[in-house]
């Protein structure tokens, strides 16, 4: 840990986060967007853990521990949504899923 400072982890996390964001913003396929969001989530976890451990307290790890649970729940429900939408509209290409509007 001494050689590889916190900034390395931070930049890694940042890069991963931006890749995730780009993916989420540009992709058309619902699942891929979902994946990139998970990616963003993990990059944040990474930064959180690295920052916490450099400061020597364990709060970061505990927080990430809960993050996993939440990510799992979110993935489950999100995918359930996709299945429901698919059953209804036969597609999860979000460009065509614009029925939730005035």
């Amino acid at each position: 840990m001494s050689v590889v400072g916190f900034s390395h982890y931070f930049f890694l996390g940042l890069i991963l986060f931006s890749i995730g964001a780009l993916g989420a913003l540009t992709r058309r396929n619902g699942i891929t967007i979902f994946l990139s969001i998970e990616l963003m989530l993990n990059s944040v976890n990474l930064i959180l853990v690295s920052y916490a451990s450099t400061n020597g307290n364990l709060a970061g790890q505990i927080l990430v521990f809960f993050m996993f649970a939440i990510a799992a729940a979110e993935a489950a429900v999100g995918l359930a949504f996709f299945i429901a939408i698919y059953k209804h509209r036969r597609t999860i290409n979000i460009d065509r899923l614009t029925f939730l509007r005035w």
Binding site: V4, V49, F68
Partner: peptide, 23 residues
């Protein structure tokens, strides 16, 4: 490498093991 083995184990167990399989 950050000396957080629990998180690593959980990451593999939960994320790669369960969530992505679900995907």
């Amino acid at each position: 490498t950050i000396k957080a083995p629990l998180i690593a184990a959980l990451q593999i167990l939960l994320y790669t093991g369960a969530i992505l399989v679900l995907f």
